[in-house]
Nucleic acid binder design. Structure first.
Lengths: 297, 297
DNA sequence: CCCCTTATGCTTGTCTTGAGCATATGATTT
DNA sequence: AAATCATATGCTCAAGACAAGCATAAGGGG
């Protein structure tokens, strides 16, 4: 029953996300090419998570806080070589100013994902999508584009990031597609990344956008004290959508996710805002819900 | 930067689930010990999913339909040996009568998870949980038990199956705990399974229970034609909870998840019920929602 | 002092959801 | 044949969640 296992290589890959200046950003290892922090699972790693943290710290100096497993890919690299299994993780961290060069905005990677100013980007993409949809197997393709990209008045679902990427990949519009001759310029479809790292980032984006709605994970991206305005800005950055301010406040407050610190700040301009902190106890107290998105259209 | 990878062993593990007679069941490989179908990733497998399907078919004869990745574990087996990476998958299938011996009810594995008759089982467990909570670090432990097991009037959340298992594991109440001296009899805490297979099943249960609420996956467990009553029974089996019949029907119908076949059946006893089939198109048409659980208390 | 900006409080109408009443229609029992 | 049981199906109602918007508050900069 158990023939000997063929050995494989195990790789740990991190999508470390922080939010700064209205854009979520992904940590890359500084190199000529865009690539995620990664490294092999080693004998001395106590667990995969521990190994992942170690690699990220070694390669970028960042100590991750929140970490969760994303997905595991198996790639047959070059013919003949061992197979590599990549276990990817999503990590969240609070960003302060500085060292922006290692941090790539995920809207630079996926320009169409920011619906806060869909204008140019989506307009530039939509015709190509329609062309692809018409080319072959039209019925299915049209429906698929409509649903994933929210065309023709259908709702845009932020959490479908991976599915959108996959459409573009199949359509040959992104540079890493197998048939990349029709690939569009990076301002529209974003830059190339090593291996399948862009797919992994898209996976992370989808997961985070979904999770933010039913688990209080935004707070892992926030400083210890923050205003509700800043919290909202962070959620909007992640979701790539605007939310209704007053309703957002209502939800956050009535769920008792935060408590006032007593302080205020006027850094935000306008009327000074009260400062809040995350009530971390809530993680035990309840199967606490997340931050629904009261949409604004 | 790239020291040579230390080789590891990659194992594929399947949690194949079907529903029969009001209980979800998990496929095991017939042996003296309870264990899940599993096998190493092989060179000739085109992908991990393909490999998984192949193993399940080889070991049990079952052809899986729907498959999704669950979680990846890394275990250091025995000291000195290579590390094993287990990539686990959830598979759903439609069960007909027969061959029940290979299929273990997940309420035999986790008796406390069936809240449709929580009576005896939970009563038998609760005192031990409270004892554990009091023993040490009481404040945290009490809250944790309350939340995960829904004690003291807090809502029971079906999808917290894994968290509940982990509490029992830490409390030493299940036979596979490192300190198993306090373990309770199998009628209360279920039987032992090979390796960490029971943890994997608990993961699958949590995932499926969560997913059923926001994606139409129940239908993967149903025959081509079914009555709404049967569909409801299937959902209740998965969730381990009763749902409100009329509201359940309302949700399913208004989401256009199903269409009438025109036929009826009186197999269910009582007034004959109309037959429906799943509108599979909906999987493309919308980011279709699942089957929320209109609770009944 | 006026205006700009963001913060914060509150109202209103709509939609969703939980809960239950009432009736329909077959099989089974009396 | 009538009563009874069991499930199916249709419909109503009230409470709560949610989208949207109005109005006021309180800083800073001209």
């Amino acid at each position: 029953m158990n023939q000997p296992h063929e050995p494989v290589r195990a790789e740990l890959v991190a999508v470390a996300v922080g939010v700064l200046d209205g854009a979520p950003r992904v940590l890359t290892t500084s190199a000529s090419q865009l690539q995620l922090p990664a490294g092999p699972l080693r004998e001395d790693h106590r667990s995969m998570q521990a190994g992942l943290r170690a690699w990220v710290e070694e390669k970028t100096g960042l100590r991750l806080g929140y970490v969760e497993q994303l997905y595991t890919f198996a790639d047959r690299d070059r013919a003949g070589s061992e197979r590599t299994i990549s276990v990817s993780y999503l990590g969240l961290t609070w960003m302060e100013r500085g060292d922006l060069d290692q941090w790539v905005s995920w809207y630079d990677l996926f320009p169409w994902e920011d619906q806060r100013d869909d204008g140019v980007l989506r307009r530039a993409l939509e015709p190509h999508l329609r062309a692809w949809a018409q080319a072959e197997d039209a019925e299915r393709r049209v429906v698929r584009c409509r649903v994933t990209f929210g065309l023709d008045g259908i709702d845009w679902h932020p959490e479908l990031a991976l599915q959108r990427y996959e459409v573009l990949y199949e359509a040959g519009l992104v540079p890493e597609s197998p048939d990349w001759r029709k690939a569009l310029p990076p301002q529209i479809v974003g830059p190339w990344m090593v291996h399948d790292h862009r797919r992994i980032v898209a996976t992370a984006m989808g997961r985070l956008r979904a999770k933010i709605q039913y688990r209080p994970v935004v707070f892992e991206l926030m400083p210890p004290e923050f205003t509700l305005g800043q919290l909202q800005a962070c959620v909007e950055a992640i979701a790539g959508q605007h939310v209704h301010k007053q309703n957002f406040r209502r939800i956050v407050e009535q769920q008792h996710l935060v408590e006032e610190t007593g302080g205020t700040t006027s850094e935000t301009g306008g009327r000074p805002a009260r400062l809040f902190r995350f009530r971390r106890e809530i993680l035990d107290e309840r199967a606490a819900g997340g931050t629904k998105l009261p949409r604004t259209r």
